[in-house]
């Protein structure tokens, strides 16, 4: 799915976001984005290829990290750490919500 062209896009694992789109939509520079990938904070779906593609759902996380960078004056390494931790929190929250959905009503 071409994120820049479509008027309405679900930002989920089915939607793909190119390197250029992520730069344009996140507020990161190209160099910062490459650095975050180098630190392992962001993983392209196709790390071996020249034209990186990312899962569309990371856009929201990256935008949150960029807000933190701007508001708290973080350097890229700290931004990478924040991004890793935000991702981990999102994953844990999703797991908790899945498990809560499976708990019978009386036990919640």
């Amino acid at each position: 799915m071409e994120l820049r062209q479509a008027d309405v896009v679900w930002l989920d694992a089915h939607c793909e976001c190119s390197f250029a789109e992520l730069v344009q939509l996140s507020g990161l520079s190209e160099a910062e984005l490459r650095e975050l990938v180098d630190y392992g904070a962001l993983a392209p779906k196709n790390p071996q290829e020249a034209e990186w593609v990312f899962s569309g759902d990371i856009l929201v996380t990256v935008r949150a990290a960029v807000r933190l960078r701007d508001d708290l004056e973080l350097d890229t390494q700290t931004l990478a750490l924040a991004l890793t931790l935000i991702n981990r929190i999102h994953n844990l929250e999703a797991k908790i919500s899945d498990l809560q959905a499976q708990l019978p009503h009386r036990l919640r």
């Binding site: 994120l3 820049r4 479509a6 008027d7 309405v8 896009v9 679900w10 930002l11 989920d12 759902d57 856009l59 929201v60 999703a94 919500s97």
Partner: peptide
């Protein structure tokens, strides 16, 4: 804003422009 079918809790939608 028009939310197409297919939404679920915590999902994000980008509406360009």
């Amino acid at each position: 804003a028009r939310i197409p079918k297919g939404a679920t809790d915590g999902q994000r939608l980008r509406l360009r422009g």
